[in-house]
């Protein structure tokens, strides 16, 4: 299972620090709200799209990630064309398209670990409010760690219930799955405490 959308390439977009890219994304999101001019927004979208060849990303991965969003966007545009006005539809669709292109570029060119460390740096000032940065990063790390483990548990439960002819009953899967997960949670907390980790 590939647990990251990052595509490794040697490009100026990849080389840009994660914090900068994230700030650029947020700034773009604000800037596009200041104009209703479709030509200006169109130019903005064109500039964003240059980023993709610049980042040397494989077309297949771009299409795979963008397609579901573009389908919704096309329906959205058609709905506006029918029910409100083509002009409003164009402006709103362009805004969404810019944001989608911009964030897709960020995701495909930036390592998850780099974004996580930006996140941790951003959250650090919140520590006095009771947000413990170490606990926070432990939770994120554990989630990533246990996704494949729980996927396997699910498969084990499914095979076991299949043998009893019960794999078509969702409850016959869901109840053992939650019981096993809660039991696992006890054992994981025990194991963390046994390692003497202070939280």
């Amino acid at each position: 299972m590939k647990l990251s959308l990052y595509v490794r390439r040697d490009s100026p977009v990849h080389a840009l620090p994660a914090g900068w890219k994230l700030s650029l994304l947020l700034m773009t999101g604000l800037l596009i709200l200041f104009t209703d001019d479709a030509r200006l927004l169109g130019a903005g979208l064109a500039i964003m799209l240059i980023g993709f060849p610049l980042a040397r990303l494989p077309l297949s991965e771009i299409i795979h990630q963008a397609r579901p969003l573009l389908i919704v966007l096309a329906i959205f545009y058609a709905a506006h064309a029918m029910f409100t006005s083509i002009d409003t539809g164009t402006v709103l669709t362009l805004r969404f398209a810019i944001m989608i292109a911009c964030s897709l570029l960020l995701t495909l060119t930036t390592r998850v670990s780099d974004l996580m460390s930006v996140l941790e740096r951003t959250l650090r000032p919140l520590a006095p409010l009771g947000l413990n940065p170490e606990k926070t990063s432990l939770v994120f790390a554990m989630t990533i760690r246990f996704i494949p483990v729980l996927a396997e548990t699910w498969e084990t439960v499914r095979v076991a219930q299949q043998a009893r002819g019960m794999d078509r009953n969702p409850l016959a899967l869901l109840i053992p799955m939650t019981v096993l997960t809660l039991r696992r949670a006890e054992q994981i907390s025990d194991a963390i405490e046994a390692r003497g980790v202070d939280l």
């Binding site: 647990l3 432990l138 790390a141 554990m142 990533i144 760690r145 483990v149 696992r184 054992q187 994981i188 025990d190 194991a191 963390i192 405490e193 046994a194 390692r195 003497g196 980790v197 202070d198």
Partner: peptide, 29 residues
Amino acid sequence: RRQVGFLFQDPDNQIVMPLVEEDLRFSLK
């Protein structure tokens, strides 16, 4: 707990970090 190490039945419950190195570093924290 510093003097007593503990090995559980299911190592999947004892390894809490996504990468091998990260998991070892976690023990040293």
